[in-house]
Design a binder for these strands. Sequence first.
DNA 1: CGGTAAGCGAGACGGTACGTCGTGTCTTTCG
DNA 2: CGAAAGACACGACGTACCGTCTCGCTTACCG
Lengths: 205, 205, 205, 205
Amino acid sequence: MSGLQRGRPRSAHAHQAVLAAAVELLTSGGYQRLTMEAIAAKAGVGKQTVYRWWPSKAAIVAEAVLSGHLAAAASPLAETGDVVTDLRDWLSGQLARLTDPSSTALLRGLTAAAAESDDDAAKLYERFTGPFRQYVVRRLAIGVQQGQLRPDARLDAAADFVIGALIYRTLTHGNLSGQGGVDDLIEVLLAGLGPRPGTTATSPG
Amino acid sequence: MSGLQRGRPRSAHAHQAVLAAAVELLTSGGYQRLTMEAIAAKAGVGKQTVYRWWPSKAAIVAEAVLSGHLAAAASPLAETGDVVTDLRDWLSGQLARLTDPSSTALLRGLTAAAAESDDDAAKLYERFTGPFRQYVVRRLAIGVQQGQLRPDARLDAAADFVIGALIYRTLTHGNLSGQGGVDDLIEVLLAGLGPRPGTTATSPG
Amino acid sequence: MSGLQRGRPRSAHAHQAVLAAAVELLTSGGYQRLTMEAIAAKAGVGKQTVYRWWPSKAAIVAEAVLSGHLAAAASPLAETGDVVTDLRDWLSGQLARLTDPSSTALLRGLTAAAAESDDDAAKLYERFTGPFRQYVVRRLAIGVQQGQLRPDARLDAAADFVIGALIYRTLTHGNLSGQGGVDDLIEVLLAGLGPRPGTTATSPG
Amino acid sequence: MSGLQRGRPRSAHAHQAVLAAAVELLTSGGYQRLTMEAIAAKAGVGKQTVYRWWPSKAAIVAEAVLSGHLAAAASPLAETGDVVTDLRDWLSGQLARLTDPSSTALLRGLTAAAAESDDDAAKLYERFTGPFRQYVVRRLAIGVQQGQLRPDARLDAAADFVIGALIYRTLTHGNLSGQGGVDDLIEVLLAGLGPRPGTTATSPG
DNA sequence: CGGTAAGCGAGACGGTACGTCGTGTCTTTCG
DNA sequence: CGAAAGACACGACGTACCGTCTCGCTTACCG
């Protein structure tokens, strides 16, 4: 066991300050302005301290996402009983959040961080999209339980569709508003998960 | 017209050499190694020449994609008459291509390039995913014509789903093989585009 | 022959600015404050430009000495006809110069620069002490011609004595003033170079 | 009186280890490699312990010199009765020692240490050259007693000459061997200290 | 056909950020 | 309370690229 503590313990304060500084720089100035030197300076920390904790910018961003500093802030999951309504509302909410310039900047930053390091990419995406996926899958599972969706619905595939499309549209079009696309997405998605045609579905009402 | 040509004309050879060098650097060494200096050096070209033609790395990559140097190389579209078979085959083909490490590197590079410049992002994605989208939409449209899909199917939304999920999975999991996920994706997608349950579809034959 | 000029020629202006900046920093703040970054900053020059011209701080200092930016400023050689008077005056003058704090700082800096690099040390000392040595040897040679000094006087050894003692005292005692030591030095030196006892010399008094 | 000892006494072992480590680093790797961290590491000592005892590198080197770790190792003074023979032998011996690369490195290191700190310079030189000066002055004094040298000989000036020239030549030429300069130095020096021409010197034999 | 104008390879320029190293201080635990 | 260990804020190091700017040369058009 390496247990015995030797030397001055690492400063939790410095750790937090770095994460906070990174988030602020990322959301304000984009990934361009997210330099190690700027992070250290804004955090009031030596560069060496930053490197002592994280090996790369991507790792910092990843931890910031994980620790909630860059909260995906999944909007609360309303459960009205109707999977269509719920998902539409939730998707609309996410979309509204992603329309916010700072969120777009954040997503862009995450993308850049992920593109930078093969190793960190999976971790980053997992941490960032995890909450989204969780909610989508959970809500769909409930739908399955209630017979609104077919029992063998591919929930993971559906979640990938939703998240992928969300990210793709955000990065592509920059601004998602005014597309009226949410309904289309929902329709395609849910139709594909609904009870098999020909199957006698128990009416949900 | 400003047309009257003065001075030495721009060298098409230099133009091509730059694109080729960029592609090679991108696929071999990732976006990290794709520096303007490296591009110029490998192309045997002065840096100024590069900047004379393109304002940024992203622009070079965009043009490389456009001009087919970084071919999306959309696999030929087989049309067996059955939209499910066709799409599954096509998706499998794309997936196989994206499984190739150099394609992953390329996609990562494109992502990085897009993340770097807000302006170029849309253009880049459009150019890179354009052929994909084109094929998917066209094939789906044929399906609609043939009555295999509902007439009011949201083809654009479907295409976004497919492309988004494809990119997302590539970036996330790195290696797409062995997921058996294609069938799931197809199933979700096509079920959502199929004839409305309860509607009597006229057989196209 | 490498003759053909390629690329932008090196900027003589930058070259000079660096030397000037180095001298100013050295005389004002000592060798401690003579950092590559400070030199570049004060010269209004990129660090890379400094490194392009010189491999080390010591080399910069060496060239500054050579080019007269850090002039040894050998005081004009009075030739009254009496070697004792001349050397005493000259030595007093040098001593007065070396008493000046900036000269002491300079000498200390040169010493530090020399101590830093085995290769540059000889060059540095040679360039810095060269003018001194030249004058001493020349004046002594005249004394030999005029019969004031023995014909086989070891002028080089004498010059080493003078320069060595000068530097040693400056570095050791910091302040040479008020030592009244010049006369002692002169006496020891010239007695050792005077006509051999027993030889019938024209009596100097 | 502050006398009553509280807490753990300072470790003499640590003290010695630091000095030894400093000497080894200085003679092996030059002043460049003589860093506080390296000293502490090689000595198996905490950095703080080093700083607790010495305020600077120069101080460490100074003490190392003083305590004989960096022995000037003045060669034993032979006294044959003839001041010329004795001084020549002694000077040759010193020269041989200084020709040794490790001695040159040491001298360079001392110079660098001295150049670094105005305050420590005098102390360093005094400690390092003290034994030299002592011997030279003593031997010359004997010469005076025995009538080989003039009674009013400036022994301090002479010692400065000898030491200054020795250091200067070592630093300048790196390698003193093969210069045949010792004899020249001796000749100049002793001639300048010999009995005044015209004075009736008691024959030493 | 000679002048003029732009593009060309080359590479130096002023900068910014990199990741590492050393400094001197501090904060732990252990003896 | 000293000593080891080692983290801390700081600042300089030498390198890599950035995007711009001269150079001398080449290649077109135009008068």
